[in-house]
Amino acid sequence: MRFVINDTDIETDIDPRTSLLDLLREQIGLTGTKKGCNQGACGACTVLVDGERILSCLALAVQYEGRQVTTVEGLADQAGLHPLQKAFIEHDGFQCGYCTPGQLCSAIGMAAELQRGLPSHVTGDLSAMAIRATREELAERMSGNLCRCGAHNGIIDAIDEVFGERRGQQGYDAEMPEKVA
């Protein structure tokens, strides 16, 4: 089967029971994506598929044949780290770093959801033209990504810097990497 992972074509035979997460970690050797629970409860395994965030532990690899999968290993480019990766370092948005790849991919997928105007549980005005990327919005939308080290403040600070309302109108457009936007 043919997979497209971080813009690279990969041909591999797989056991149809294999999850996308295990395909990445055990077969392709992309161990950046983490397994925290293997049952959809922690978000550590979050990757982007055609720019949308999914939990790769709950996804069978065979469903993603030929689709654009982006993992944490694919966020940086020749120009260097993705702005969000830099912001995570600057704001100390991690301690052990085990939830980090999931937080990063999730935040990038989340920014696209905000941009598309998808409301969340805490969105006040559902008919507004644009949703304000307040800290509360960001925190609500990131709540599927658990962090036990307690790096929550640094994570939200980093996301706020790159995608939050502080960045103003053109905010996240400028920062969306092309391959996942």
Partner: peptide
């Protein structure tokens, strides 16, 4: 170890 951790490395 920040750069390694944010790249999943």
């Amino acid at each position: 170890d920040g750069p390694l951790k944010v790249q999943g490395a």
